[in-house]
Design a protein around this nucleic acid. Structure first.
Length: 395
RNA sequence: GCGGGUGUGGCCUAGUCCGGUUAAGGCGCGAUCCUGUCACGAUCGAGAUCACGGGUUCGAAUCCCGUCACCCGCG
């Protein structure tokens, strides 16, 4: 893959760019819908194209466990397997190690829902060794890699930088991510530092493993993004940005804990992004909500991915210009309006809130499909508008 | 008419034989939550004087009597 900055804003770090790959162009800033198991849940690849998304993100961890990357490879790679000929990105599996192990026990995501007071915050212990016996058995991190158990059948597996790279090569994505250790927002500085340093060593191993692949032209070659860690600690984030930013990656992911509050997340972006090479794309991993985009883009983020629009759609939440609607609520049964009057998506063109509400209450899966369509359409339009704002020098 | 059975939140049931603090669960209903997806998921909440009336007892959904409703069989 190859990245070009087309226009740099004078008012902020926002910029317009294009990622060129063997499977077409991706105009940034952009949002990747998440296709964990080689599918945007409830939709077809045609639907994705219809909405206008140029790229999606699939998951190494899940596809490795099922159906197995060798199968996908035999079927011609992810693009052919799922009949999606746009830009494919694959996550490294690193996050799952975190989220399936200790994360679940602590109920913690990327931004802590818990706001530990001074006496409550008792971090600094490595999360993975501080949880109960069950979870300790589930994930074990060593310098070599990570031993973990499958969430499907409990079988033991091992992922390492080399293994993750091999899987991602077999899957055949256009953009791949380095295998990292993702720490919890509850991890203290000491442990976050250790994890970050390990992520740095793993980053070099990922680069080395990726270079073994046969030489191709710049565009058709798989892109590899390094991941910046360091949690909510300024020193660590700066250190990580300098180190990872100095390596020969095609782009960068900002990963790990983004702090305990939203404002901390923006601080982290402001510490990190100015230290990264300008000519390479930056991906804010796992974010975000609608209100996150403009601010993060102004801070210099080019790429996003998040399960928010798709997962919330399946849970009955529709995003609109005004506020989100919970289509499970029976008040919508007598509402003849579309989800959003200003929306041009197929769902809003063809169906009422009443009908969708009925489908949700009747647990008909088409309701989930209609909302997924709408939410992704809404996201696409939302990001497109921000891109237009940059083009017009408004932000 | 006779015999047998059943009546517990909106619905379906547990508890009844061997009475004991705020009657349990599922569905439904309502609300909240979800940020590199174990995710058609998670959490919380409202809602029943246990068909009705009487009796026994310190105490009854539970034991006894009666009434009503419904179900099954026989006329």
């Amino acid at each position: 893959m190859q990245f070009k900055v087309i226009q740099q804003s004078k008012k902020s770090l926002a910029r317009l760019g294009v990622i060129k790959t063997a499977h077409g162009d991706l105009h940034t800033p952009a949002f990747f819908p998440v296709a964990t198991q080689a599918v945007i849940k409830t939709l077809t690849s045609d639907n994705i194209k219809q909405i206008g998304f140029e790229g999606i993100l699939a998951n190494t961890y899940h596809l490795y466990l099922r159906p197995g990357e060798k199968i996908v490879n035999k079927m011609g790679g992810l693009h052919k397997f799922m009949n999606f000929n746009g830009v494919m990105a694959t996550d490294s599996g690193g996050f799952q190690v975190f989220s399936l192990g200790a994360g679940i026990a602590h109920g913690v995501g990327k931004i802590a829902k818990i706001f530990p007071g001074p006496q409550q915050s008792k971090p600094s212990t490595p999360l993975f060794n501080s949880c109960d016996r069950r979870n300790r058995n589930m994930v074990r991190i060593t310098e070599e890699g990570v031993y973990f158990r499958s969430h499907l059948d409990g079988s033991q597996h091992f992922l390492s930088p080399e293994k993750s790279m091999q899987i991602q090569q077999d899957l055949g994505a256009d953009i791949t991510f380095a295998f990292d250790e993702c720490t919890s927002p509850l991890a203290g500085q000491e442990y976050t530092k250790k994890a970050m340093e390990r992520t740095h060593r793993w980053a070099k191993r990922c680069l080395r493993a990726a270079q073994i692949t046969k030489n191709k032209s710049l565009i058709t070659k798989q892109g590899l993004f390094g991941i910046i860690q360091g949690g909510e600690y300024k020193k660590l984030r700066e250190q990580s940005a300098k180190f990872i930013g100095g390596l020969d990656f095609n782009g960068f992911g900002i990963g790990g804990s983004l702090g305990k509050t939203k404002s901390k997340m923006y601080e982290i972006l402001n510490w990190t992004i100015p230290l990264l090479p300008q000519e390479k794309p930056r991906h804010l991993l796992g974010i975000g909500y609608l209100e996150d985009f403009e601010r993060a883009i102004k801070a210099g983020v080019d790429l996003f991915d998040c399960v928010y629009p798709t997962r919330f759609a399946r849970h009955g939440i529709a995003l609109t210009a005004k506020k989100k609607l919970n289509l499970n609520q029976n008040k919508f049964l007598i509402d003849k309006n579309p989800l959003d009057k200003t929306c041009t998506c197929p769902t809003c063109q063809n169906h009422t809130r009443s009908y969708i509400c009925h489908l949700f209450r009747a647990k008909e899966i088409t309701g989930q499909q209609l909302l997924t369509m709408h939410n992704l359409w809404f996201f696409k339009q939302f990001i497109d508008k921000i891109r237009q704002k940059i083009a017009m020098d408004k932000i």
